[in-house]
């Protein structure tokens, strides 16, 4: 589904992170494996905005494991650098797909582009679903109605 800029804004959430010392390697650059933690923080904030966070998922009888992830390391992330992560929900009917852009919070350079896909799994049967639960779709529609 192609989102209008208004819809994209409603389905996006910004997160600010300052790169901590414990994530950088001997070159002062964030080790590539740590990026997914920043995406997780941004994702949790986005899910809170949508009104269907991990706790809501559990209460509704579903789990949403990450089944695919892509990260493009455009520019390095450096120790103490201030980051602005924008997470945007792009698919919510068949699966929970989120795109991310990490910017330098000071000069707005794009540093990283990433995406994740999370599939709905029925917690009681452990079976992957080919459609997201109605409650998620309803929450997104409620948000979109604000446009």
């Amino acid at each position: 589904m192609k989102l209008t800029s208004d819809q994209e804004r409603l389905l996006s959430q910004e997160t600010l992170i300052t790169v901590p010392f414990f994530d950088v390697d001997s070159m002062n650059i964030v080790w590539h494996g740590h990026y997914c933690k920043y995406l997780e923080v941004a994702r949790c904030n986005l899910l809170d905005k949508i009104g269907y966070n991990y706790r809501d998922m559990k209460n509704s009888g579903f789990m949403f494991p990450v089944v695919d992830m892509q990260i493009k390391y455009v520019q390095p992330l450096l120790f103490e650098q201030q980051l602005r992560i924008v997470a945007t929900l792009v698919e919510w009917e068949c699966r929970l797909d989120i795109r991310y852009k990490i910017f330098d919070a000071l000069d707005n350079r794009v540093l990283t582009k990433a995406s994740t896909a999370q599939a709905a799994v029925n917690a009681s049967t452990q079976q992957m679903q080919f459609a997201c639960p109605a409650i998620l779709i309803q929450q997104v529609n409620n948000l979109l109605e604000k446009s």
Binding site: M1, C94, R95, F130, A131
Partner: peptide, 18 residues
């Protein structure tokens, strides 16, 4: 599921194949 998402854009309908 990727295939389903592509089919959805093709048919302009959510294909929900439970």
């Amino acid at each position: 599921v990727n295939l389903m998402i592509e089919l959805k854009s093709l048919t302009s309908k959510k294909i929900s194949l439970e």
